[in-house]
Design a protein around this nucleic acid. Structure first.
Lengths: 336, 336
DNA sequence: CTGAAAGCGCTTACAG
DNA sequence: CTGAAAGCGCTTACAG
């Protein structure tokens, strides 16, 4: 059933039907009502293809994720951010075109293809990196995008910021108040912007509190590297009394590694995780962690993107800070 | 850049360009080469909208997932199955339209909308339920689909089976060989088809081995219900010496609940988990579990769907059985 | 307020 | 083998 069918049934032209259906002026209220009723009766739905062709609007948004399936699977973050995005798109009947890619280069190719094929009106970009090639590329394409982690909007690119500073201040503050001095961190991969931001925030907060400089070891978010990093930290001359982990897998691996090294958590070592996991509560000890509302985060990104598509200038959006959930893996440091 | 531009540059008609670009007969080899070269130089990409409109093929596949974001996030299953689907779609430039929905009814609405708007050529359907309304609906719509868990293909619906029988036989066999007699299970929600299949398989295998009838408690995949179910099982008159859990969250919650009830795992209680999780290896004790290649599973589903879209009859596909990974949470039962 | 027409970028019979 | 034309289902100036 097409607008032609409706036009015939209503005895008007296709143009009038189109105006009526899209809520545009150019038809009398009476005619509009009649057309809408007929469309409803006939069960008409717009053909996205036809709309896209005359409109050059696809009413679809792209989201490509560049991580190994194993990592994507283990971290709730990705599904949660998608859930947030969906909560904004679905009610507006905007489709989410989703693609998993091997790396950022493949991601850029996906954008190019989507744009050239006019598959999507814009994209959501995740995990901003240092010197991220995607930013320049999207700018050059003039492709609307909302970028999670971008510090400031530019051109057609909206920025959805998260405040790593607050997160780190909370964690360091909590540990410092417990009496910890030697605080280390098993950080995520260096290539991510947020890793660098966290490092800056952590060092700043520790300096502000007069604590000795933190030892920071980088790992790639895998349990193996986190295990190795933890063992190395604990084997040092002046081992830390507290370790912060940048992800859930790394924190759980770290807890296990600490046990394997003969350190009781939290009596001899405190552990704080960054990021959400339904498992934190179930471990022994349950892990103290900073958690954020990732669903809300995704929703803001989607809204920022739709805003650009509606013709407004790209915005810089802040998101609610993570909150520290104190469980059983942090305690005053052991004195010996 | 459109085929018009190419036609002009090549001095031929749009029709010839279309034939050349699509590898159809009707152009000389020489002309075809020239057209392809020009298309390449000009960086031409087909407009999906235009193609869809004349072809009524969208070259997109839909996937709706009906679970709470929390559950979707915690189980690697979903991302893994998507990864498998993508591995088949991406190389063919077929888009994945993804949607999260609240329940099966919302999912059916999503299908109806996609189909009416001609957004997708077919869908992937996950988590078949008992008396699943989606099957009848898709059949009535005549919408091509690959359904994970459907026992047998019908009409335009391909079936991607998994063999719960093998999984259960492996688990029960392992526990029986260790000497367990009283084996219980904290099962997933009753509404899922695979829950019922597992129950049938478990009962069958235990009967075959002459073991007493299993106690099976249903939970909704949440840690709370699994904790309660575990406590209830362990408080009974003749408590089980081994418990099988239908999901990762439930298994981890069960492990903790067992500890809280004063049961040492595996000395006093053996635990087996169904499903993959990167955390199993990191727990203490590490969890014995049956794991399947969910990525391969997703890939088969996608291939089965593309097969239907290519005009072939819907197939019934089997998938590799899960394999039992024996870790540290299973041991011979405690004698007292 | 309404109708007739052109156009979006393709595909596909239909003539030559 | 090639060109001219109609059509897919919409939107949107342009006349009346």
């Amino acid at each position: 059933v097409t607008i032609n069918d409706i036009a015939r049934a209503a005895g008007v032209s296709k143009g009038s039907v189109s105006f009526a259906l899209n809520g545009q002026p150019g038809v009398s209220a009476e005619t509009r009502e009649r057309i809408l009723a007929i469309a409803r009766d006939l069960g008409w739905r717009p053909s996205t293809a036809a709309r896209a062709l005359s409109n050059s609007e696809s009413r679809a948004v792209g989201f490509a994720l560049a991580r190994s399936p194993a990592l994507l699977g283990s971290e709730p973050y990705f599904m949660q951010i998608i859930a947030g995005v969906e909560s904004v798109l679905a009610p507006r009947s905007i489709a989410l075109v989703f693609q998993m890619v091997d790396d950022v280069d493949a991601e850029v190719l996906a954008y190019e293809q989507w744009w050239a094929e006019r598959r999507v009106d814009g994209v959501l970009v995740n995990d901003l990196r240092l010197n991220d090639p995607r930013v320049a590329y999207l700018q050059q394409l003039g492709m609307p995008a909302a970028i999670f982690g971008l510090p400031r909007a530019r051109g057609t690119l909206a920025a959805v910021r998260f405040d790593e500073m607050v997160t780190m201040r909370e964690i360091v503050g909590h540990l410092a108040e417990l009496g910890h001095q030697r605080i280390a961190r098993v950080a995520g991969s260096r290539k991510f912007k947020h890793t660098a931001l966290r490092t800056r925030a952590m060092r700043g907060e520790m300096e502000r509190r007069g604590l000795p400089e933190a030892t920071i070891v980088h790992a790639d978010f895998s349990d193996e590297e986190s295990t190795a990093a933890t063992a190395k930290l604990l084997a040092g001359a002046a081992p830390p009394t507290a370790i912060i982990y940048d992800s859930d897998i790394m924190a759980v691996a770290g807890l296990r590694a600490a046990n394997d090294c003969g350190r009781l958590v939290p009596a001899e070592l405190s552990i704080v995780a960054i990021g959400n996991s339904p498992f934190y509560d179930l471990l022994q000890p349950a892990l103290t962690a900073t958690e954020r509302d990732v669903v809300a985060f995704g929703a803001r990104g989607a809204r920022a993107l739709l805003d650009i598509l509606a013709g407004n200038p790209a915005q810089t959006i802040s998101t609610p800070a993570a909150r520290l959930v104190i469980r059983a893996s942090t305690a005053p440091p052991h004195r010996d």
